[in-house]
């Protein structure tokens, strides 16, 4: 709360601040994460809540396994198309305001899994606030992401949200406009595959 000013009165102390700053201060220091441990990163997420890294120092240790009680979705791990429906449902069930951290390269961009089953980044179905690289990222990196998110929350305008209704975040992944981020990128290693049937298929199509 940058503009916190103590005001002296007779026997009673006052603090004067702006309402939105007070709300932001409360929000940023009590993030309730929804640990969506999908794969390897889930283990590092556990380590982060564990004794050495102790996420409680940043007020974000109250992990809840029901999306209705959470405001921070940590997508930790590889998301497949089969799982995407569940992830989107969880996001929809979380009450506003809500934020998303894409933990690890898999959830940021698909990572090393450029395959038929994996979503190339959760941002194709959800709006993401902070991306954390690493496979898996070290807990320090995720803690850094949480600090960055806290700074982002500080800049938000909650009063506008209250007066004008929730802000419509860009809703990604709309049916027709959806494009895989890596579409069109030449896959040289695959083109060299001796069993690669691409040529065969093209030949048959002709």
């Amino acid at each position: 709360m940058g503009s916190l000013k103590p005001v002296e009165g007779e026997g009673v102390g006052f603090l004067a601040t702006r309402v939105d700053e007070l709300i932001n201060w409360g929000r940023k220091n009590s993030l309730w994460p929804m640990p969506l441990g999908l794969s390897c990163c889930g283990i590092e997420l556990m380590a982060m809540i564990g004794p050495k890294f102790d996420l409680a120092r940043f007020g974000a240790e109250a992990a809840r396994f029901s999306p209705r009680q959470c405001d921070l979705l940590v997508v930790a791990g590889t998301m497949t198309w089969k799982m995407a429906e569940a992830v989107r449902t969880i996001y929809d069930q979380m009450p506003d305001p809500k934020w998303v951290i894409a933990m690890g390269v898999c959830s940021s961009s698909g990572g090393m899994y450029d395959s038929y089953a994996v979503v190339q980044g959760v941002d194709s179905i959800l709006p993401v606030d902070v991306y954390v690289p690493g496979c898996p990222p070290r807990p320090d990196a995720v803690i850094d992401a949480i600090i960055k998110l806290q700074k982002k929350i500080e800049r938000e305008d909650p009063l506008r949200r209250i007066l004008k209704g929730p802000e419509q975040k860009p809703d990604l992944g709309t049916g027709e406009t959806f494009k895989q981020p890596n579409a069109g990128v030449a896959r040289t290693s695959l083109d060299l595959h001796p069993h690669d049937p691409k040529a065969k298929i093209e030949e048959l199509q002709k």
Binding site: K82, S115, Y116, I125, G173, F178, Q180, N182, P197
Partner: peptide
């Protein structure tokens, strides 16, 4: 998917999700 004439990057991998997303 493991047939050799199936490409590694898949054929319309998001088809089922998009159908679900439309309903949603």
């Amino acid at each position: 998917p493991l047939r050799k004439d199936f490409p590694h990057a898949g054929i319309e991998p998001d088809r089922l999700y998009r159908e679900w997303d439309k309903k949603r």
